[in-house]
């Protein structure tokens, strides 16, 4: 599991980040926290994207993860970071597994749309339900770590980094297994995959469930990082669109890509927001179009080219 270049790089990067984070200023730590929390969801969407599936509704699982944390906090006073994360991933993953029985028969825009519909059902419920916080959402109390309450953001940052690292390693392994390799093959010819003896529906169901667990975990981590949840920034279809945007921005080439892509997205957002608050979406949309037209492999393919040139020299 650790004996390839990607895995080694992930371990090294994790070490550097965890040490570096202790000395970094708060705002940098924050950017990494948000970036890596979102990256978890992107990692899952990447698994789907490799098979040609785009979900315009993964905010459903992102939101479930985030709201699981909020409701556990309010109803039961659960503040432990690991319990919260587990709750988010389990709730979203269970929902994803169940929805997966239907979703595995859908492709293309029907897949995208059914996901949208399901996420908007949740959005519709949350927005109109007082006990779920309605449009205002909830504030979430500070997370504790195995009983102790940290004084800075650093411990949470380390945990998010470690969770991200572990997930990346697991997905990296998954992508090298037989079922994980069934990506382009499914996109190219489902009939052949069936005749070879593998159920395309089962393969897609697994990919879908993986993506929902990761999206739920991402939602939980995001809720903890932000200290609040609300439907507009956690469940609405524009959030799903944002997740898809970062997925395409990152590129499907490698499990490290979602982390880099998410960080770029965070930085882009912070600066664009400061420089031109009314043109933030414009910048995002234009970037998106540029990527679709000229850089189909996303940021990762650019990095690969850079690396390739260096090696050639």
């Amino acid at each position: 599991m650790f004996n390839d270049k990607t895995a080694k790089f992930i371990l090294l990067a994790g070490l550097v980040l965890c040490i570096g984070g202790a000395f970094a200023p708060n705002w940098i730590v924050n950017q990494f926290m948000f970036g890596f929390a979102r990256a978890l969801a992107i990692l899952g969407l990447m698994v789907l994207w490799r098979t040609g599936l785009v979900s315009f509704g993964h905010a459903f699982y992102f939101g479930l993860g985030a709201y699981a944390v909020a409701i556990l906090d309010i109803e039961l006073g659960v503040t432990d970071v690991f319990l919260r994360l587990l709750a988010g991933a389990v709730v979203a993953g269970t929902a994803g597994f169940l929805v997966g029985f239907i979703m595995r028969n859908y492709r293309d825009i029907f897949f995208a749309m059914l996901n949208t519909a399901i996420s908007m059902v949740l959005f519709g419920i949350v927005v109109k339900t007082e006990s779920l916080g309605s449009t205002d959402g909830f504030a979430i109390s500070m997370s504790t770590i195995l009983g102790f309450a940290p004084e800075s953001k650093y411990p949470l940052f380390v945990i998010i980094t470690l969770i991200g690292l572990t997930s990346a390693l697991l997905v990296n392994f998954y992508l090298k297994t037989t079922v994980g390799k069934l990506t382009t093959a499914i996109r190219d010819n489902e009939i052949r995959v069936e005749y070879l003896g593998f159920s395309v529906a089962h393969a897609i169901h697994l990919k879908y469930t993986i993506s929902t667990i990761l999206a739920g975990g991402a939602g939980a981590l995001m809720a903890m990082s932000l200290g609040q949840v609300d439907p507009e920034s956690m469940i609405n279809w524009t959030v799903s669109g944002e997740l898809v945007f970062v997925t395409i921005l990152s590129g499907p080439g490698n499990v490290i890509a979602p982390f880099i892509g998410s960080l770029v997205f965070e930085v882009l957002r912070t600066y664009a927001f400061e420089l031109a608050p009314q043109a933030w979406q414009l910048i995002m949309g234009a970037t998106f179009l540029t990527i679709i037209f000229f850089v189909p492999g996303g940021i990762w393919s650019l990095l690969e080219k850079l690396g390739g040139k260096k090696n050639a020299k």
Binding site: G241, A279, W280, Q281, L282, G285, F288
Partner: peptide
């Protein structure tokens, strides 16, 4: 991919 491109356009036009 075309859906995604129109989403990009949507963001641009909104701003």
């Amino acid at each position: 991919l075309i859906v995604l491109a129109t989403f990009g356009l949507f963001l641009v036009l909104e701003d």
